[in-house]
């Protein structure tokens, strides 16, 4: 029995270590979902609290990272459903399969200590472009390109078929290119046309990304 307890204790510590390693990814996903630092911090904390409570009953097997991201998204969805009852809440744009207008990006937070790459114009342009996407595009862009989840994992996290993930990602890419070009042009930077032709020069601050 002692041996079993020790093994269980070791497995719990290993699970905690694994789970805590994803705090950066989870915080970034929370920012993508909420676009608000305080809400994102609350969402991360609530996610870990639920995860650790669940693990105390039964340690999760399999993909811990996808499990954590699924918990986070479910909390966020439930929170938004609750807030929708309040008249001042924005409507979910979950049905904007055509891309829609999206939202304005967060205010310029150049001096915020929690923003990386703020000195790099391109990094800021990418962040602003992603922030301005409609919710359904923003989350798949972050899950695929920043967190490296597969289509099947993304389908599990957002609760829809892999085919929907595929089409949503394709439209999200197109929309992101358009918006990134907008932010880059406003900073007098090269275009990122889908045909592979840059209008001029190189993108400053990044290596050989585009020519």
């Amino acid at each position: 029995m002692i041996r079993r307890w020790r093994a269980r204790n070791h497995a719990e510590r290993e699970f905690e270590r694994q789970a805590l390693a994803y705090v950066e990814g989870l915080y970034n996903f929370a920012m993508a979902l909420t676009r608000d630092r305080t809400e994102a911090e609350d969402l991360v904390q609530e996610t870990y609290l639920r995860a650790f409570r669940g693990a105390a009953q039964k340690l999760p097997t399999g993909d811990v990272k996808a499990w954590l991201f699924t918990i986070m998204r479910n909390i966020w969805i439930n929170d938004r459903r609750r807030k929708r009852r309040q008249p001042e809440t924005e409507e979910l744009d979950a049905d904007e399969e055509d891309g829609g207008i999206g939202r304005r990006p967060l205010a310029d937070d150049r001096h915020r200590p929690d923003v990386l790459h703020e000195q790099q114009a391109l990094g800021q342009a990418i962040r602003q472009a992603i922030e301005s996407l409609p919710d359904i595009y923003r989350e798949v862009i972050v899950l695929r390109f920043l967190e490296g989840f597969s289509y099947n994992q993304i389908a599990t996290i957002i609760g829809c078929p892999a085919g929907t993930v595929m089409s949503r990602l394709s439209r999200a890419r197109t929309e992101l290119r358009k918006r990134l070009n907008h932010y880059r042009e406003s900073a007098a930077s090269p275009s990122l046309e889908a045909g592979g032709r840059a209008t001029s020069g190189r993108i400053r601050g990044v290596g050989e990304a585009y020519e």
Binding site: V23, E24, G25, Y27, N28, M31, A32, R37, A40, E41, V44, Q45, P113, D114, V115, L116, H117, L122, G123, I126, R127, I130, I141, V142, F145, L146, R173, L176, R177, L192, V206, E208, A209, Y210
Partner: peptide, 20 residues
């Protein structure tokens, strides 16, 4: 290159020490 560009932007936000 576009995909690599996005991956290079990671992380978009620093994690505040308080939440860690």
């Amino acid at each position: 290159r576009f995909t690599a560009l996005l991956a290079q932007a990671r992380p978009l936000y620093d994690v505040p020490e308080s939440i860690r």
